[in-house]
Write a protein that binds this DNA or RNA. Sequence first.
DNA 1: TAGAAAAGTTAGTTATGACTAACAAAATAA
DNA 2: TTATTTTGTTAGTCATAACTAACTTTTCTA
Lengths: 229, 229
Amino acid sequence: MTNKINLQNLTKSEEDYLKAIFQLLNDNENEKVGNNLLADYMSVSPASSNNMIKKLTSKKYVSSKKYGKLELTEEGRLVAVRLIRKHRLWETFLYNYLNFTWDEVHEVAEQLEHIKSHKLIDELERFMDFPAKDPHGEFIPNAQGDYVEVPKVMLSSVKEGDTCKLVAVNDGSVDFLRYVSNIGLMLSSEIEVLEIREFDNSLRIGFENKEETITKKFADNVFVKLISK
Amino acid sequence: MTNKINLQNLTKSEEDYLKAIFQLLNDNENEKVGNNLLADYMSVSPASSNNMIKKLTSKKYVSSKKYGKLELTEEGRLVAVRLIRKHRLWETFLYNYLNFTWDEVHEVAEQLEHIKSHKLIDELERFMDFPAKDPHGEFIPNAQGDYVEVPKVMLSSVKEGDTCKLVAVNDGSVDFLRYVSNIGLMLSSEIEVLEIREFDNSLRIGFENKEETITKKFADNVFVKLISK
DNA sequence: TAGAAAAGTTAGTTATGACTAACAAAATAA
DNA sequence: TTATTTTGTTAGTCATAACTAACTTTTCTA
């Protein structure tokens, strides 16, 4: 009888849930991550996710109390980070070697990340010469499970010519949110800063074949992550 | 209401069974392929495989009658060949690019073959510049589903220096079978023909770090497939 | 050709991971 | 602070794909 947890013997479903919990905890650093949020993220009923939470809690990958918030144990976190590592390495492979486009990589990587073989993923990483970031600009965790987030910065601090991805907006005002979506920007939009006008600090930005001029105040309220190859 | 069969919507299990039936039909060209053989090959109980046969028959991938022999429909054959195509392309990738050895490739390819993406496999094939054979020397079927077997030849007809794989023995005599296994040869053994002595047509062969001398009569009763890169 | 062995089938059970419907607890608002 | 909404839980059902045990059909063999 051993108390060592076998990280290999998880079902595809269990893996998907652990990754989802990790992502939700990361994306909602301060707010509570609960069952309904998870159910929504996984596109299942709250009953289904509640079942899985119980299972993962009894298997010591998740720590949760009745009606309480969700957290991952050290083992659960490791499983999730390894999945993200695999996902990002495969996305990089598909994008750099197999002519996949930015928007095609995710769906296939979602399948490939569940392939069980340490050698496969480590050799794939070596074959690609240890890439630091995936096609979306996110850091690829190493084999030890070290996870680093690309820092979130204000759009107004991005340099001319750089490309970035919209990850959050300052949601203080409803007007502002409506303004953002009217322009056509949304979460994950890829934005290129075409020109910065020193006169009034306004920015000319390009995204999805459109161009717009935005004010410094607007750019101060939009948060992005830099994408670099 | 359409009568077109969706080749994409099969479970991993259904795919595995279809591939197994295809392999068994190929390996036992004349003999009857039935439920027990399939169960054995899949390492499940006859009840389980019988269930799946019914399901695949109702879905028109398999044609079978009660207590009768198994056959694949055209759709079933196509599913199986596409799986074999994927399996062999992945094996080739693992072997040629990711430092996998001959005996490591199968297990991982067994998982990778179930990834659903036409683009993935066609681009992988292009990336490797359309390889004709996999690391085991088997032909890789094309995207249209054309399947060609590497011909089975007598070991006595293999040229000096060539490498081949044992695929069958002439099983007329129990003595001979015992002789073969005593030497240490078995199905799938990789055999290199080191020397052919013209004096008595005996062969010096190497396999799994061993060397043996065999007679022409012995070599006439061992069937192999040539392996070429 | 009758009886035994092998091959195939059916019935009923189990685990996983979905679902709906009904209910309980917590959080928010009046 | 009570009422209402949101969030979380439980009970019971379904499909997939495995299992065992019992049974039937077919095929061998004496």
